[in-house]
């Protein structure tokens, strides 16, 4: 039926498809400034999707996700700049190194729950940052710039280079979204969604909680690592406090996901959009923009735990991106009334 809610939902879906098409063509459509901004948007989106999967579904409330971004950045620099590996391949390898770091971290951190787990992830991230500061080939505590030869590898002309880096970020964000979509539609994803709503209840219907947690923790690491590599291409530098920035790669991401809607597919996307829109207006405020975002996210949580999307979804009654499985039309028709 063409109820107003359905019209809005279908309009939203059409807008979404249009947005994806426009995003795929960004370098041909927009100025260099906007391409740079949208590259940053795509990287932030990847981080938001991953944090949401961990904290929103698998109940792994990590405040150490910047560890994998930093590890990815340092691994990328190592492969590409120090060991002469092909720069594209180095991005992939950055993901693999992040995965390799996630395995022992998981063995350590999964012994802890809730607040202790959060502290554990943070401590691991800080240790990794301190260790990165000891790597003299990476410039030690003050870091170093990405060599010109590697920058030029992604395009001799500036706009070609910006376009290439943009498409890398876009590709990563698109695959993060598709992987999450298919994961959530799968058997394991249905279990994850059940865990999100009631963990004990999920265990009681046979959802293997431990396996789901391991899968999410290890599955997000390569995405975070590759995001770290791409972020390095944007910043053209590695340095411990910047590459392992808790503010940029964890705290800000938490705010965005909470504002957009934790535990939903749409939440991190909406949160990241809201952040970039707000930032255009709050840019002059410097460090204040973090304080304002934090305050907004607390306000949102108090009004609706599931963020802006939770609020809108209640009115619309369905998801924008159809993750949920529906019964056949027959069932509800036969038994109404």
């Amino acid at each position: 039926m063409a109820s107003p809610a359905n019209l809005i939902l279908n309009g939203g879906r059409a807008a979404l498809v249009a947005a994806v098409v426009v995003m795929a063509a960004t370098p041909w459509l927009f100025s260099a400034t906007h391409v740079v901004l949208l590259t940053e948007f795509m990287s932030m989106l990847v981080l938001a999707i991953m944090w949401n999967l961990l904290a929103g579904y698998a109940d792994i409330v990590t405040v150490g996700q910047h560890a994998y971004v930093g590890v990815g950045a340092y691994a990328f620099f190592g492969f590409a700049a120090l060991w002469g590996v092909n720069p594209y391949l180095s991005i992939l390898l950055a993901g693999i190194v992040a995965f390799a770091i996630a395995v022992p971290t998981m063995l350590l951190v999964f012994r802890l729950r809730t607040a202790y787990l959060a502290i554990g992830t943070w401590v691991v991230a800080e240790l990794l940052m301190l260790a990165a500061g000891k790597l003299s080939a990476w410039g030690g505590g003050s870091g170093t710039s990405v060599p010109i030869s590697i920058i030029l590898y992604f395009g001799r002309a500036r706009d070609v280079r910006l376009a290439t880096i943009y498409w890398l970020a876009f590709g990563l964000a698109a695959s993060a979204m598709s992987v999450t979509y298919f994961l959530l539609r799968s058997r394991i994803g249905i279990g994850l969604t059940a865990m999100r709503d009631n963990e004990e209840g999920a265990a009681a219907i046979g959802v293997n909680i431990t396996f789901a947690r391991i899968l999410c923790f290890l599955g997000t690491a390569p995405f975070l690592g590759m995001a770290g590599a791409i972020i390095t291409l944007q910043k053209l530098r590695v340095a411990p406090p910047a590459s392992f920035s808790i503010t940029d790669w964890t705290v800000l991401i938490i705010f965005n996901v909470v504002i957009g809607g934790i535990g939903s597919f749409e939440g991190p996307i909406i949160g990241t959009i809201v952040y970039f829109v707000l930032r255009q207006y709050l840019a002059d405020l410097g460090a204040w923009h973090l304080i304002i975002l934090g305050t907004v996210s607390i306000a949102v949580i108090l009004i609706e735990k599931r963020g802006l999307w939770g609020l809108v979804r209640r009115l619309l009654g369905d998801d924008l991106i159809p993750i949920a499985h529906k019964p056949s039309a027959m069932l509800t028709k036969q038994h109404t009334g």
Binding site: T193, R306, K326
Partner: peptide
Amino acid sequence: KPFTHMSVF
């Protein structure tokens, strides 16, 4: 212990 935000189905 229902999964509150999932449909009954």
